[in-house]
């Protein structure tokens, strides 16, 4: 049903993912983070969402200059318009998927 090496990989990966996820929640129960840390982290949501979005746009390989993935850029145009105009995440995702399917059909 499951090979031993896959099981080891899954357990190892689960642990290294879980520990950073829960550690701040455990520490946060015991100590209060310094005000300066909280002040800087106030900008994390905006920063990390911006970074995660751009990460999916650029095709990157260490040592080479990152270039935009043009199919992603093209599909992003109607997606962003929908997001700004309708302010509805579900419709944004639908428009995005359809736009990307069309872009790949043409390119």
């Amino acid at each position: 049903m499951i090979s031993k090496s896959v099981l080891l990989i899954l357990i190892g990966s689960a642990l290294v993912t879980w520990i950073p996820r829960i550690t701040p929640f455990i520490l946060g129960k015991m100590v209060k983070f310094p005000a300066i840390v909280t002040r800087f982290l106030e900008y994390l949501p905006l920063s990390i969402l911006c970074a995660l979005l751009l990460e999916t746009v650029f095709s990157a390989k260490t040592g080479t200059i990152p270039t935009p993935k043009w199919d992603v850029v093209l599909a992003l145009i109607p997606t962003v318009i929908t997001a700004v105009w309708l302010k509805d995440l579900m419709k944004t995702v639908i428009v995005g998927i359809v736009a990307m399917a069309l872009v790949r059909l043409v390119i």
Binding site: L46, C50, A75, L76, T79, V93, G96, M100
Partner: peptide
């Protein structure tokens, strides 16, 4: 799955979530 544009759900979701947060900020 790429031919159906499904992988783009990730980018589209990040775009929507980012723009919502950006607007508030």
């Amino acid at each position: 799955p790429e031919q159906f544009g499904l992988d783009f759900a990730l980018t589209a979701m990040f775009a929507g979530l980012f723009l919502t947060q950006f607007e508030w900020e």
